[in-house]
Structure formats: C-alpha cells, structure tokens
Amino acid sequence: MMSAPDAQIDATGRLRHLLTLEGLPRTTLEGLLDRAQTMVDAGEVNARLAGIAVCTLFFEPSTRTRLSFQRAAQRLGADVLGFDASTSSTTKGETALDTFRNIEAMGVRGFVVRHSDDGAVATLAAAAAPDTALINAGDGRSAHPTQGLLDMLTLRQAKGGDFSGLKVVIVGDVRHSRVARSDLHALRTLGAGEIRVCGPASLLPDAAMLAGCTISHDFDAALEGVDAVMMLRLQRERMAEGLVDSLEDYHRDYGLDARRLRRAARDAVVLHPGPMNRGVEIDDDVADGPQSLILRQVANGVAARMAVLETLLG
C-alpha cells in the first residue's frame, strides 16, 4: 500500500484526499491557507457543495473537530450525515472498512474520519471509489492535518506569511500528539526559522521526528525570545503509564502562566489545540489572556476545513 503522503496526490498532482501534511507541496499548503483566509475575510457562505453528501465518520470522541467540520460542510451547502460509533453497528462487530463501504454505497462522496489506529484513514482511502474523498480528522498518533492547517492560518494572521524569522516552541506531550506531528510538518514546509520542542524526556519522541528542531527539557530556557508558544494537552493516561510523576510536578516544570510567558517575545502568541487542562499545562491568566489565540484557532478551524472540503469535493 502507498504511504499516506503518496496516496493523497493523484497522477495529475491534484489533491484527492487529505491524510497528512507530511510531504504536502508548499504550493498546495499555501493554496489551502490562502483560500481559508479568503473565507475568513469574506465571511463566506456558498453552495459549492450543494447536493453532495459528507459524513463525519468518527470512531473517537470529539467536540471541536466534529462540530467544526459539520459547520464547514453546512456553510458550503453540503448534506451532512453524522456517525456515532457508540450507537452504530461497530458495537456489533462491524469493521471500520465495512462501515465506510456501506455509507459510501448510499452515495456519500466526502468522509471526515477520526480513528484511534495509526494509518486507519489511509486504509479507507485506499478502498475508496475514484470520486470519493477522505479527510483525516485525527488517526492514532500519526496526523491531524486540518488542525495543522488552522494553526498555521492563525500564525499567519498574527505574524505574517513569512515564517523564516519565526521562533516557535511546541511544549508538552509531543510523543503521543498527532497535532504536534502535523504542526511540525507544516512549520518545516513553510520554512519556520527556528522550531523548539520542549517537554520531559519521557514525553518526547525519537530523534527522527524532531529532525531540525532544538530539543530542551528546560521550559524557561525554551521560552526565551520565542514568537509563538504551542501548548499541548497532557494526556492524563500518561500518569497511569508512569511517564509523568504527578500533575503538580508537571505544572511546576511545564505549565504556562503569565509570569513564565514573560520570557517570550513581548508580542508572543499562545496556541492550544484543546481540550485544555487548566491548571496543568496552561493557567487561566494565559488561556484567557491578551496573548491567547485559542478561540481564534477554533474560529479559523471552520474556514480551514471549508477550504479543504471545497478543494476535494468542489
């Protein structure tokens, strides 16, 4: 089977699926960001997907991503079908592939898929009909490409389109984060000047994933002079796995509060993909403070996902 980066581009160079930001040509990535920004500026609502059915096929819980995709599809005039794994035939043993094929047979052309297994969305894409498009809404630890897009859109709005002078730090559980992977792929593709990655050794991945990044276990040092701080959710199951001693210790070493944020550049911005653990990886005075772009990320998510849906299905 082809890799996800290869499977999403057809022989003509057209984006057929969006499975990952890894290997996505810079022109394609910037084109999606440009289209999303146009939609933000115009407050765009159009009927370009009128008569096209889109299914949010989520095998994992979600709030922001699912609702954002539903909102995006509705604003493009699509017919939106929701799928709830807890009340579906998957509870009777039906495989994800059979579920997908049955819904596709109903005439659904677009699928937004979240799954707990790495590579699950690429497997479904390999079985899709030629006129069916799949969008990865998060698979295992692998990728969350539309989160990466909306994060880059938010950074462009705040810091401009030239990333060459940008210093960005990604903080927290990078090892298990599909968001971090997609953000790293996008930042590299867009030519970010310096990418720093910070967290306890137990929550950082192997060196291959962090190629070209400055790695630190000292949050205070990693914050010095950065233009953007991208916080990650501490997945509490890591405590049960023994990867984190305690929430209190994690907050002491890697929690972002207003005092600590002063080490960053004066106009530094703060991002977080949500859901947030307030008082663990981020404090209220930052999450709700003037440098926080967290709610703008959510708003930008609708535009970014509109751009993807329109590009794949329009």
Rank of each mutant, 00 (worst) to 15 (best):
D285R: 06
R266Y: 11
V229Q: 09
L261T: 02
A228D: 08
Q235R: 02
L271P: 03
D257P: 12
Q297M: 03
D288F: 14
L243H: 08
D257N: 11
M230Y: 13
S246Q: 10
D285H: 09
L234N: 02
P290T: 01
R238T: 01
E248M: 13
E241V: 10
D285S: 07
L271I: 12
G255R: 00
P290G: 00
L232K: 05
L243W: 08
A240R: 15
R260V: 12
N277H: 13
L243P: 00
V286R: 00
L293R: 15
S292T: 02
A264S: 07
G279Q: 02
A268S: 13
V269Y: 04
D257F: 01
E241I: 10
A265Y: 12
R238L: 08
M276P: 15
V244N: 09
V270H: 04
D245V: 07
R278V: 09
A228K: 11
R263E: 11
L243C: 07
V229C: 08
D227C: 04
R252E: 08
D253Q: 15
D267Y: 14
D288A: 01
L295A: 05
E248C: 13
Q291L: 11
A264L: 08
P275G: 05
L256G: 01
R252I: 04
V229T: 04
L243S: 10
A240G: 06
A240P: 00
A258L: 07
A268C: 14
V286A: 01
L232V: 06
A287V: 08
Q291I: 08
G274M: 09
E237H: 05
E248N: 14
M230R: 07
E237Y: 11
R278L: 15
A228M: 14
A258E: 10
D245M: 09
A264F: 05
L234M: 08
R260N: 11
S246T: 07
A268T: 09
R233Y: 13
A265V: 11
Y250R: 01
V286W: 00
M239A: 09
R266M: 08
E248T: 15
V269Q: 11
L271R: 09
L247K: 05
A258I: 09
I294N: 02
E248I: 11
